[in-house]
Amino acid sequence: MKIKEIIVVEGKDDTVAIKRALDADTIETNGSAINMVTLEKIKLAQETRGVIVLTDPDYPGQKIRNTISEHVPGCKHAFIEKHAALHKYGKGVGVEHASPEVIRAALKDSHVMNEEAVSDITQDDLITAGLIGGAGSRERREKLGQYLKIGYTNGKQLHKRLIMFQISKAKFAEAIENISKEEYDG
């Protein structure tokens, strides 16, 4: 499988994992302190071939996403769930630990974040859905991120993430209904 876009990853081990999964080119950020030279490479890649950002499901990975989104709008973002990116002996979390199947699925489900989008989903909707401010809200946010393929986020950032990925109120309601059904059936 070959993809046109260039994949932005954090380091060499991530590139190796990507190459095991498919035929693709990568740009490595070498950590969360991305320099301007790397941002210029990402900008050129976005202009010529398109970019998919695939970072670790942790705070530094989110910091990298935010920096890239700020400097290079219009990139696609792919997410790997934390449980699928854990080292087999519990020694860290990262793209390099994900299976080729998980990496291919994440890239297939990548989509653009829109920083200027608006949404009809309100903070009250999030509270009513049990996503913030209550027992089990973290687990429900994890399930929502998996269902909508937007990755996990904390309660403070959830509304922003829903807006950036242009999740409609109908799609949000469908996701909450399915999550609630799973919890009821499970």
Rank of each mutant, 00 (worst) to 15 (best):
V9G: 12
S110F: 07
I6L: 10
P60C: 01
N178W: 12
L162A: 00
H71I: 04
V37T: 14
K76R: 03
K160C: 05
Q123P: 00
Y184R: 11
G11T: 10
G31P: 13
G94Q: 04
V37I: 15
I167P: 09
E47K: 10
K160L: 09
T122L: 01
T38H: 06
V16A: 15
I179F: 07
G94F: 10
Y152Q: 04
V95N: 11
H159L: 15
G11Q: 05
A173H: 07
V93M: 01
P60M: 11
L22M: 15
Y184F: 15
Y89A: 12
S32G: 00
G134H: 04
Y59L: 13
A45S: 05
D185T: 09
L144G: 01
S137K: 10
K88E: 13
D120L: 05
Q123Y: 06
I34F: 07
R138N: 14
E81W: 10
K169V: 03
D56A: 04
S137L: 10
I6R: 10
K181I: 05
G92H: 13
T48W: 07
M1V: 09
K2G: 02
V8A: 08
L144A: 01
P73D: 06
H71T: 00
T153Q: 11
R104Y: 08
D56R: 01
K171H: 13
A173P: 06
L131Q: 08
I80E: 03
I80M: 14
L44V: 12
Q62R: 00
E5S: 00
G186W: 07
V118T: 08
L162D: 06
A105F: 02
A106C: 09
I64D: 02
G50C: 03
E70I: 05
D185Q: 14
T153Y: 11
M164A: 13
H159Y: 11
A170T: 11
I52V: 15
A173F: 03
G186P: 00
V8W: 12
S180C: 10
K12F: 13
E10N: 11
E5Y: 01
S99I: 04
D23W: 14
T15E: 15
D56F: 02
L162G: 06
S168F: 05
H71L: 07
V37G: 08
E47Q: 12
V53Y: 08
A135S: 15
D109K: 02
A33I: 00
E70P: 05
G74R: 02
K169M: 01
I179S: 07
L158D: 10
Q166P: 03
A106Y: 05
I121E: 14
K171Q: 12
E115K: 08
A24M: 06
V16P: 09
G74H: 04
T38G: 12
L107R: 04
D185E: 13
V51D: 08
K82Y: 14
V53I: 15
N30M: 09
G134V: 01
A98M: 06
I18S: 14
G134I: 02
D23M: 07
A170V: 02
A175W: 11
I127D: 02
S137D: 14
K2M: 13
E101F: 09
V9K: 11
V112N: 01
K2V: 08
E177Q: 11
I6G: 02
K160S: 14
I18T: 12
A45F: 12
T48L: 14
K91Q: 13
D23C: 09
V51H: 06
D14Q: 04
V72T: 06
R161A: 08
R104S: 09
E5G: 06
